[in-house]
Amino acid sequence: MKTSFIWIGALVVGAVLGWLGLEWLDASMNFVATVYTRLFQLLAVPTIVLAVITTFSTFGSKGSGRIFGHTLTYTLLTTLAAASIGAVLYVLIAPGKLPLDSLVNATLTSDLAPQTSYIDHVVSIIPNNIVRPFIDGNVLSLLLLAFAIGFGLSKLPESENKTTVVRGLIGLQELLFLLIRGLIRTLPLGIVAFSAQLSAQVSTGVVADSIGKYVLVVLGGNVIQFFVVLPLFLLARGLNPIHVLSKMMPAVLMALFTKSSAATLPVTMDTAEKRLGVRQNISRFVLPICTTINMNGCAAFILVTSLFVMQQGGTPLTLSTILMWIIISVVSAIGNAGVPMGCFFLTLSLMSGIGAPVAVLGIILPIYTIIDMIETAENVWSDSCVAAMVDHDI
């Protein structure tokens, strides 16, 4: 509880500093926020890899297959629910077409244009170099490598060499968590900087460029998923959603400001184990997987934004079209990396692939920072719910 009050206090202080509009102060806060984001990203990649390897090295024992089955089931159900809510809200609120001059004036700079098709994106996940995924920070490629190494270790016959390798990996993991806990102790300073960043963006009019009903659909869907659907999942499993959210609040707040569920993973795992009481073998198995494939907010964004962009291009939004894009959005979200603006670039690639007017995304871009923050917080909240439910079930 004391930690939550400190974090909330840091949030308020940062908001006030951002509203002051002092250029030197904004620059300082941007510097601090960037440092914290880079440090968590630095720790996130080895956290994911080591957690998956050490957990899958025991696959076939301690119920690992059952844990994975429950994790995948809850991930698909929550992600499908998020996309479906977005579709229902889109039909009910019915965003109209943008004025023609808005479409003409909206442009995306060349560095935002997708360089590859979605098929190429999927193929790029398959690593052809064991070092490259670490250099690029390609989470999905790293997961494939980690799965392969973990399963390989689980199939090796028991021997002194195997024991030495596993103990070495576990030792590295313990060292990593020691560094993470040290960084978390200084995190109130980072929260002040992240909050100041957001406050400065709002005060300079970033949010003022909203496009009404579209934003209402996106944010409305996130709010319903966050406060209604996910708590209902918890209640169905006999868990108190208020208790779970209060315990996981540090991770949710961290996700809100970093806009990266992958960068937040060290905090999510530490919070789940230390505050919520999720067993270590569950937390370190479920959360790295969820960080990569459990993208509730991303699925809703892809679905709603794709429908909106296609509508501007004159595509009739029939029931069959909407249902097809619900499936596409769920599959795409599962294949998306948990990094800032990941959903935006993925949607851009999908729309470019079907010849939709991607210039519409140039209108959405100025407010995407706010959308991305809320989506990421929802993603981490969903990850936390899945971990709590799996821990309860197993």
Rank of each mutant, 00 (worst) to 15 (best):
G212N: 02
L80F: 02
T37G: 13
T347L: 09
I135Y: 04
V386F: 05
W7T: 02
S57W: 00
V12W: 05
L42R: 00
I85S: 02
G314S: 05
I191H: 11
E174Y: 05
G63F: 09
T291V: 04
L178S: 15
S4C: 08
V380L: 04
T186P: 04
S124M: 00
T318E: 08
S64C: 11
N240R: 09
Y368P: 04
I224W: 00
G171V: 02
F344M: 15
T258G: 07
A146Y: 00
F344H: 10
E160T: 03
P46G: 04
L232W: 01
D26T: 09
F233L: 08
A193G: 08
A33E: 10
M1G: 11
L175E: 06
G220D: 10
L42Q: 02
V218N: 15
V278A: 09
Q197N: 14
N296K: 01
L39F: 09
S199Y: 06
H243M: 15
L72M: 08
N240H: 07
I242C: 09
L239Y: 12
N222G: 14
A236V: 02
S349C: 13
M373R: 08
P366L: 03
L178P: 00
S329Y: 00
M351P: 02
A10Q: 06
T305L: 02
V215L: 14
V339K: 03
Q41A: 14
S203P: 10
L235I: 11
V390D: 11
T318M: 06
V390R: 13
V35S: 08
G212T: 01
V286E: 11
M324G: 00
N105A: 14
T79R: 00
T315H: 07
G220E: 08
V215F: 10
R279F: 01
I48V: 14
G335T: 14
G221D: 06
P250C: 13
E174M: 04
D393G: 01
V91S: 07
T264L: 07
P250E: 08
P99I: 07
T58G: 12
I135H: 04
G205F: 10
G137T: 05
I302W: 00
F177N: 13
L178K: 15
L189D: 10
V207M: 15
T116S: 10
S384M: 09
V304K: 03
V215T: 13
I8Y: 09
V139F: 10
